[in-house]
Design a protein around this nucleic acid. Structure first.
Lengths: 215, 215
DNA sequence: AAATATACTTAACACTGTTAATATTTTAAA
DNA sequence: TTTAAAATATTAACAGTGTTAAGTATATTT
């Protein structure tokens, strides 16, 4: 049964080639440029061929989103070596922010846009979603770190998950305000003389300083 | 019905009528439904007529965004009567969150989408932007409240603007995570048994509890 | 060799924002 | 009042978008 396997592999190859083309366009020219027709041109196939490998555009976006989470996971990976949970949390925050700035299109796809998740919802109806593992893994890493922090006296008597979600929301809020130009806008109006890129680190610094206080 | 009546409307009226039609579609069927052609159909004019009153679609979105900020301002207005700055801040947070949930399309337009601001950028180049007043006013209200809090012992030695931005980012982060389904998603995976709508208040409560600690 | 299944493409549909050219109406001047 | 000019609105079209139905080669199986 080698022929069938080869065919199957070929099929998977093309599926991957479509995703790679989409990824290339996405990273190079952003979401706007990632159209079905342009992806098709990139792999030198007809636009309709794509629909033989992906249900629709959201299906591709969802696959791209997964790649984004893998990318974020890779950024987090070295931080697992950091023993001190407080230092680890700080580094996680910085890494997360850096990821959002350097891969803003991916970030939008992962945390801002709701389209890719629409696909996921259908999966969730019939039981539990098998996918989205990477996203959950990243959150688990945060959860684990907060747990470690609680073990050494931080967030006494607080619910680990609630605290984790709160931290996530804070950093996510910072990232989106920055990405969407709101921090820069406020800086121009209220913090003249300060370079706009300096604002985010200042706020994040203030946040971690605050965390230290509640030990 | 009313061809003559229609014709009698003067320029500003029609400009407003376009905005009202856009607002109606926007609130009723969301961003997706707010197309030039549908706005035109709503006011019973040709699609191209709209371009005689608004430069492009972003121009309309920007006008809608301003209406959103006025709406948010109205929600904040009663809170100015709250004397205790801590209670005021809490109420502001709750109001902000409530606004984001009840007017999620507006919220997206005001704080998430970057399209409406692209228009603004051109204004900013030649000097300072005359518009966006309502947005700045809302932030000023927060700034003022944090100032009051510092006067009674909160956030000692911290920069008022940085703290305000941090608070904004936190609440904004919570709103977007909720709106985009991430809180619900995590709740399903990590907090089974808890109804998804209960999560946001829990996190917010945990946040204000922390604020109390750093007095 | 004929029938069938697979892989892919062409053509089209129903949309989108936007513009150029055209027609209509209103206003102002001769 | 008639005529020229200006303002206003419309039609038709362009260049895109995601997506689908129908048709065409190619390869596999009978």
């Amino acid at each position: 049964m080698g022929i069938k396997e080869r065919k199957e592999r070929h099929r998977e190859d093309l599926r991957q080639a479509i995703l790679d083309a989409a990824k290339k366009l996405f990273m190079k020219h952003g979401y706007e440029a990632t159209t079905i027709r342009k992806i098709a041109a990139e792999i030198e196939f007809s636009p309709t061929t794509i629909y033989l490998y992906y249900k629709d555009k959201n299906d591709i976006l969802y696959a791209l989103q997964k790649e984004g989470f893998i990318l974020l996971g890779k950024s987090f990976h070295p931080l697992m070596q950091v023993d001190d949970p407080y230092e680890r949390l700080k580094a996680m925050g910085r890494t997360f922010i850096q990821f959002s700035l350097e891969n803003s299109e991916f970030y939008e796809l992962m945390f801002v846009m709701k389209e890719p998740l629409l696909n996921l919802d259908t999966f969730c109806v019939n039981g539990q979603d098998v996918d989205w593992e990477e996203g959950i893994a990243a959150f688990d890493f945060l959860l684990h770190t907060v747990e470690d922090l609680q073990r050494i006296g931080y967030f006494k008597g607080q619910d680990t998950k609630i605290i984790s979600l709160w931290i996530w929301a804070t950093v996510h809020g910072l990232c989106t305000l920055q990405m969407h130009g709101h921090l820069e806008h406020v800086a121009r109006h209220k913090l003249e003389g300060l370079e706009p890129t300096a604002l985010l680190p200042l706020i994040f610094g203030s946040f971690v300083q605050f965390l230290e206080k509640v030990k």
